[in-house]
C-alpha cells in the first residue's frame, strides 16, 4: 500500500508543473470536492498518490474516492488544506475552527490522510 516516497529534491519548475491543476475528491455519499492540486498535497497520502511515478489509476484521472470519509468531514479537510496553505508561511496565524462533535471522525480521517 505504501507508495514510493516522492523524490525530495525535484527541480523547482518540475514541481511547479506538478502542482498545477485541480483534483476531484469524492466522499462516501458521492459528493465531489474540486480542490487545487497544490492544496490536496498538504496531505502526504494524497501527495504520494499524485506524484508517484506510474501513479495510482484514479489519480491519473484526477479523482480520488474516499468511501470511508463522510461529506462533512471531507469538506472540513479541504478547508484545512487551504487554511494550511495560507498559514504555513508562519508569518501570521489564525484559528482553524473544529466543531467538537466532528473532532473524532476528523482526526481519524486526518490520520489516514497523514495531514
Amino acid at each position: 500500500m505504501a507508495a514510493p516516497a516522492p523524490a525530495q529534491h525535484r527541480e523547482a519548475e518540475e514541481e511547479a508543473e506538478e502542482m498545477a491543476g485541480v483534483v476531484k475528491l469524492i466522499s462516501a455519499e458521492g459528493f465531489e470536492f474540486f480542490v487545487d492540486k497544490k492544496a490536496a498535497m498538504v496531505s502526504n497520502t494524497l501527495r504520494n498518490m499524485l506524484t508517484s511515478p506510474g501513479g495510482f489509476a484514479e489519480t491519473r484521472e484526477g479523482e480520488v474516492r474516499f468511501p470511508e470519509i463522510s461529506t462533512a468531514i471531507l469538506e472540513k479537510i479541504c478547508q484545512y488544506f487551504y487554511w494550511s496553505l495560507h498559514y504555513s508561511s508562519g508569518k501570521e496565524t489564525a484559528e482553524f475552527p473544529i466543531e467538537p462533535e466532528i473532532t473524532l471522525e476528523l482526526m481519524m480521517a486526518a490520520n489516514y490522510l497523514d495531514t
Binding site: 504555513s88 508562519g90 481519524m108
Partner: peptide, 18 residues
Amino acid sequence: LSTVRPSPPRFGSTDPAP
C-alpha cells in the same frame, strides 16, 4: 487513537522558503 495527534501539526518549521 492514542497515535492521533491532538492538534494539527505545525507547518511553519519545515517550509524551506516562504
